[in-house]
Lab assay of single mutants.
Amino acid sequence: KDKDLLKGLDQEQANEVIAVLQMHNIEANKIDSGKLGYSITVAEPDFTAAVYWIK
């Protein structure tokens, strides 16, 4: 199951987060929520590491 990592990002921010996570071998998903911006989700086992790397 995926957990929400970040919400309300613009496309550039979302792409930067995806890139950082991929560099650390964390699979992440970018979801277009329309006017609400983009959300990033990661698998539950990767959540703690993902939070660490996006600081």
Score class of each variant (00 low, 15 high):
E27Y: 14
V51L: 14
I26G: 04
A14W: 03
V42S: 00
M23R: 12
I18V: 07
Q22K: 14
D46W: 09
V42D: 01
Y52M: 11
V20Y: 15
I54E: 02
A28Q: 00
G37C: 08
Y38V: 05
T48K: 11
W53C: 07
D2N: 11
V20M: 15
D10Q: 08
S33C: 15
Q11F: 14
L21P: 00
I54D: 03
G8T: 04
D46V: 05
Y52D: 07
E27D: 11
N25M: 07
E44F: 08
L6I: 12
L21T: 01
T41K: 07
I18Y: 05
K55G: 14
M23Y: 10
V51D: 07
A28I: 04
A49P: 03
N15Q: 08
D46Y: 10
K1M: 11
A28H: 05
I26E: 01
L21S: 00
S39C: 10
L5I: 07
V20W: 15
L36D: 13
E16P: 01
Q13P: 03
S39I: 14
P45V: 15
L21D: 00
T48G: 09
L5M: 03
D4L: 15
I18A: 03
I18Q: 04
E44C: 08
N15T: 06
D46Q: 06
L9W: 01
L36G: 13
K55L: 14
G8P: 01
A14M: 04
I40K: 00
Q22M: 12
L36C: 13
K1R: 11
I40E: 00
T48F: 12
D4M: 15
P45D: 15
D4Y: 15
A14Q: 00
I54H: 03
D2L: 12
N29R: 13
L6E: 03
K35M: 11
A14N: 00
W53V: 13
E44N: 05
E16Y: 15
E27A: 14
V51F: 08
L6K: 02
K7E: 09
G8I: 02
E44V: 09
D32Q: 09
H24G: 02
K35S: 11
E16V: 12
V42I: 06
A49T: 09
A43I: 05
D10R: 10
V51G: 04
V17C: 09
H24V: 04
Y38F: 13
K7C: 14
V51W: 13
K55I: 14
E44G: 09
W53K: 01
D32F: 13
P45G: 14
Q22W: 11
F47D: 00
Q13C: 13
T41P: 00
Q11I: 13
A49H: 08
A19I: 08
Y52L: 05
S33M: 15
I26N: 00
E16W: 15
I18D: 00
Q11D: 13
S33R: 15
L9A: 02
W53E: 01
Q11N: 14
I31G: 02
P45A: 15
N29L: 11
D46M: 09
E16L: 14
I31F: 07
I40F: 02
E44A: 12
D46R: 02
I54G: 00
I31L: 06
A50M: 03
K3P: 05
A49N: 10
A28D: 03
W53R: 01
Y38C: 06
A19Q: 06
Q11P: 09
H24R: 04
V42Q: 02
A14C: 05
I31V: 11
A19F: 11
A50T: 02
A49D: 11
W53A: 10
E27V: 14
M23S: 12
A28C: 09
I40L: 03
G8A: 04
I31P: 02
K7G: 09
E27Q: 14
E44L: 10
K55A: 14
V20F: 15
K7R: 13
S33L: 15
V51M: 13
L6C: 13
Q13F: 07
L36M: 11
Y38H: 03
G37I: 05
V20G: 02
A43Q: 10
T48H: 12
Q22C: 11
V42M: 02
L9K: 01
N15P: 01
K55M: 14
A50D: 03
A14R: 03
K7L: 12
D32V: 06
I54N: 01
V51A: 07
F47R: 02
W53I: 13
K30A: 11
K30G: 04
L5A: 03
D46S: 06
D2T: 14
V17N: 01
K7S: 13
P45L: 13
K3S: 05
V51K: 09
V42G: 01
P45Q: 15
T48L: 14
A19H: 10
M23I: 08
V42W: 03
N25D: 08
L5E: 03
G34V: 04
I31R: 05
K7V: 14
S33D: 15
N25Y: 06
D10V: 04
V42K: 00
D32A: 07
D2H: 15
E16H: 14
T41I: 10
V42C: 04
V20D: 03
S39D: 09
F47G: 01
A28T: 04
E44W: 10
A28G: 06
T48E: 15
T41N: 03
S39Y: 09
E12L: 09
I40N: 00
K3Y: 09
D2P: 12
L9T: 01
S39F: 09
E44S: 08
A19N: 09
Y38K: 00
N29F: 12
N25C: 10
N15D: 13
K35R: 10
A19T: 07
D46T: 03
M23N: 07
E27P: 14
D46P: 00
A19P: 01
H24D: 00
E12W: 12
I26H: 02
A19K: 14
D10A: 07
N25F: 08
I31W: 09
A49G: 05
K3N: 05
A49I: 10
L6M: 11
K7D: 08
K1N: 10
N15F: 08
E27I: 13
E27H: 14
A28N: 01
Q13H: 08
K7Y: 11
Y52K: 08
K1H: 10
L6G: 02
A49Q: 09
A14F: 03
I40Y: 00
L5C: 06
L5D: 02
K30W: 08
P45C: 13
G8E: 05
K3E: 05
V51R: 06
K3G: 04
I40Q: 01
G8V: 03
A43M: 07
I31E: 04
V51Y: 10
D32K: 09
E44D: 09
V17Y: 11
I40H: 00
M23A: 13
V20E: 04
L36K: 11
D4P: 13
S39A: 08
Q11T: 08
G34C: 06
K55R: 08
I40T: 00
A43P: 08
T41G: 03
A14I: 04
Q22L: 13
W53L: 09
D10I: 05
D4K: 11
G34R: 02
K1F: 09
N15Y: 07
D2Y: 15
V20H: 08
G8F: 09
L21K: 01
L21R: 00
K7W: 14
V20L: 15
M23C: 10
G8N: 08
A19Y: 11
E12T: 10
V17P: 00
K35H: 13
V17G: 01
T41D: 02
F47H: 05
L9V: 03
A43T: 05
E16G: 08
I26Y: 03
M23W: 06
E12G: 08
D32E: 08
E44T: 10
D4S: 13
F47M: 04
V42E: 02
H24L: 04
V20T: 08
A50N: 01
W53G: 00
I26C: 04
V51I: 12
T41W: 12
L36E: 13
I31T: 06
H24P: 00
A28R: 01
